[in-house]
Design a protein around this nucleic acid. Sequence first.
RNA 1: CGGGAUGUGGCUCAGCUUGGUAGAGCGCUUGGUUCGGGACUAAGAGGUCAUGGGUUCAAAUCCCAUCAUCCCGACCA
Length: 569
Amino acid sequence: MKISELFLPTLREVPQDAEILSHKLMLKAGIIRKIASGIYSYLPLGLRSLKKIEQIIREEMNNTGAQEILFPAILPKEIWDETGRWELYGEEMFKLRDRKGREFCLGPTHEEAVVDLARGEIRSYKELPKTFYQIQTKYRDEIRPRFGVMRAREFIMKDAYSFDISEAALENTYSKIFNAYVRIFERCGLSTVPIEADSGAIGGKVSHEFVVKSTNAGESTFVSCPHCSYAGSIDAAKSKDENLSSSEEEKPLEEVATPNAKSVEEVAEFLHIDKASIAKSLLYKIDEEFVLALVRGDDELNEIKLKNLFSANHIRQAEEEAVKKLTGASTGSIGPVKTKLKVVVDKRVSTMKNFTTGANKDGFHFKNVNIERDFTGEKVADIRKVKEGDLCPKCGTPLTMYEGVEVGHTFKLGTKYSEEMDAKFLDSEGKEKYFVMGCYGIGVGRTLAAIIEEYNDKYGIKWPVSVAPFTVEIIPLNMSDSEIRNEAEKLYKLFKERNIETIIDDRDDISAGVKFNDADLTGIPFQVIVGRTFKQNGKIEIKKRETGEKFIVEEQDAIKFIENIIKEN
RNA sequence: CGGGAUGUGGCUCAGCUUGGUAGAGCGCUUGGUUCGGGACUAAGAGGUCAUGGGUUCAAAUCCCAUCAUCCCGACCA
């Protein structure tokens, strides 16, 4: 490809609406352009890298025995009604009607579509296991699109769905795909951490997120154990129960005035007590029910855990108005004593003695509150957010907290969807059974962004060879010099003959500096420079973008030189 | 949805406080010079100042509304 003909609009200055590095670089290097919030076009260079990633995914998925298919992006409402997700997904789904008024959506995911296909076609255990995958555009009307293609409303995803005869068989399929994921990301140059995760709107019991550590672009917070292999997303992570049970004598309940002290910090300071001796009370609306949740003053409530505890669909903190009405006090002064509300107690609170809570009276708190004596908890459960330094649930080592980009997510769905959609097969004994399913996603665009987030310097992108849009860029520094021009064109031909993906910066009206800067920005792994060095002693200069190293080689050795480096990688 | 910010040639931004001829740099076009790290030079093209309304003799500038975009939060494979 000749750069003079390539559509490669690079920018000198970054458009103001880019925040994170990968987004800025994708705009600057002519990889993407925005057409609306969270909706992007891929330009030639970006598309080439995207296709490289897709190809890696295809190869690894095919290796697991999965088969590629393609579902429509537009899906009828009926199948979503079967699982209840038409309502559940709600506003996040792009919905539309055809001319007759029939309702459709732009698919945010394809469990319904694949189950609909399988239940119509697969009848016997002999046809199992089967795994289908597709690489396709997904639509989710995100509340807040962010960071370019990292969180977009239209995005390309590889999604796979497996059908097995039993949980044990699913286990086997799951681990095959799990391993394929590790290889896919490895080949893309990314080191991912598989973490235990919450399965959210997709459902199922076990799920793993594949996360790339990233301090700047991270959207997923997770903890990982420096000693063993445990890692978990902040939504799902557990910690080892520290033995906190107190042998303290129960003291008499005491009401104390705490004027103007609302937050845990203020109350702790006012009463000269430790935050950890306070139990903070939070009123939540879980589906249609109000619940008072209690966590230790120095802990944070994990809404996901609370939601899952009730197998609920929706959860949100109650508004001030509801708090007043149900407790008689405002947010900072509510508590579990003498309340009619259902109370959920975090495990850590359940071991506390003589703690402080709101008195359900503005400006007052209770001291020396004790469970059983002063109130009863409906449920005791782990509903707190894991914190840095908490102990690993497996080995007891203090956990470290990280930010990361979730590039993949795998789920053991079990029979959730097959039951909801009545999808069955006949087993070897002639009995009807529900398919045991798994589903597996990779954000392709997000993977691309994550790679750029990882591979860059102040000059631009440093593509790993495996996903680079081109492998070699030939840079003739002075196109009006016929010797240089001819040599560059000769090399271009040679490289192409060797099937090395090569572009040549044949623009004749720009200075050397622009060519160098554009080459560094777009990040092609090898720059083959034809200029002064060639004029003086007939040699070719090769710059490795990754390290900035420059090598002077004989013309006839140039190809071999690059091929050798590629092989080493 | 709550909070914050922004909207002026393709891009980055100035002008708005104190209303009065729409500006700069980069990019683009044409000619000449130059040619190893974002060259020089001369001549040009290009703007409903987001949209709608209001105030005013007069609005990019003041007021109101709407829309769009970004950031933080809530939310979220």
